[in-house]
Write a protein that binds this DNA or RNA. Structure first.
Length: 343
DNA sequence: TAAGATT
């Protein structure tokens, strides 16, 4: 049924729901046959097979616009999957003409560990129509890793959101001043977008003005390694019970342990690890002080080297303090580590 | 030699 398509497109990808793209057209299909086929469903305002300008050779796809969204929905239901000569045609909603896919996707960092898509959306919605909101979470803990994405319907709204919200305080927090900028990498098309499926799309597609089309099959930038995340309880030396040891130390240091509710963890900033230390090594360095929830070595992806620092997130403030006091000024690979609670 | 992260 067309209900799925309707729902999918009701989220902002095709606001008027009257524009269709038809793929896998037979080479010999004439413009008139194309028009008649779709006119049999409803009132067609335009129908066009995309052809080579010089040779008129069909690229195998076309557009149909209806005056009424119900007709468009009906066309999808009736004609998608239709056998036409030797081809099974695909009928789906298209992006609106002039649909912008550049500079609509925002990268938001500085989010708290308990950030949610809903809070993110609430914060950004005054600036326009939000197509998609994502909070990136650690797959083990489910906690926000401190960043997320907000996909706007158009670039003007996205630009206004940057102006209005970069540096703003994330609601519900006292100290999370978020950073808002355009995402580095393009948001891929929506799920089931024809862009993901069409096998013989032209190299450019002026009616879309879309950067998603060109080089769609190009190589993805390789991800650098990701830190392991295995619940380890290993102990080094005499610290067979890190939590107890940490609490003992905290008492000695007259530090409060009242923050240990186990909810968000405490982040330790580690400087001086040099350009070659990876997350596994950082883990090994810091594993004996408590339960590590997350490890991150900051990487210069252009140089292929570490920036010399990283972050270790412990379950509790106590463990973090224990790590700080244990590792500060420790020498590692010829450098003196500088370790502190992240500010 | 100092505070990130890019679905």
């Amino acid at each position: 049924m067309g209900d799925d398509d309707t729902d999918q497109n009701a989220t902002g990808f095709n606001a008027n729901m009257t524009n269709l793209i038809i793929n896998y057209l037979p080479q010999s299909l004439t413009d008139d046959e194309f028009f008649q086929l779709f006119a049999s469903v409803g009132d067609v305002t335009s129908a066009r097979i995309i052809r080579d300008k010089k040779t008129s050779y069909s690229f195998g796809y076309g557009f149909v616009n209806y005056g009424n969204p119900n007709d468009a929905a009906q066309a999808i239901e009736q004609l998608n999957g239709q056998l036409l000569q030797s081809k099974t045609i695909k009928v789906a909603y298209s992006q609106p003409s002039g649909f912008q896919t550049k500079n609509i996707n925002l990268y938001v960092s500085g989010l708290p560990a308990d950030a949610s898509e809903e809070r993110l959306q609430d914060h950004f919605s005054p600036f326009g129509t939000i197509t998609q909101c994502r909070v990136i979470r650690d797959k083990n803990t489910g906690l926000c890793q401190g960043f997320g994405f907000v996909l706007f319907a158009n670039r003007d709204e996205a630009g206004e959101a940057i102006k209005g919200l970069d540096g703003s305080l994330f609601p519900g927090t006292l100290t999370n001043n978020i950073s808002v900028k355009f995402a580095k990498t393009e948001q891929k098309g929506p799920p089931n977008s024809y862009l993901n499926k069409a096998s013989h799309m032209p190299y450019s597609f002026n009616t879309l003005g879309s950067s998603m089309v060109g080089r769609g099959g190009g190589p993805m930038r390789g991800h650098s390694f990701r830190g392991r995340f295995s619940p380890m309880t290993s102990a080094r030396g005499t610290f067979s019970n890190p939590t107890t040891a940490a609490e003992g130390m905290c008492q000695n240091l007259n530090q409060s342990v009242s923050g240990d509710n186990g909810s968000n963890g405490t982040i330790v900033f580690v400087y001086g690890i040099g350009p070659h230390t990876n997350e596994d090594q950082l883990w090994d360095l810091f594993k004996s002080f408590g339960n590590i929830m997350r490890i991150n070595v900051i990487w210069d992806h252009n140089k292929g080297l570490g920036k010399g620092y990283g972050f270790v997130t412990y379950s509790t403030h106590t463990e973090a303090l224990f790590a700080v006091h244990s590792m500060k000024n420790v020498s590692f690979q010829g450098r003196q580590l500088q370790v502190s609670i992240k500010t």
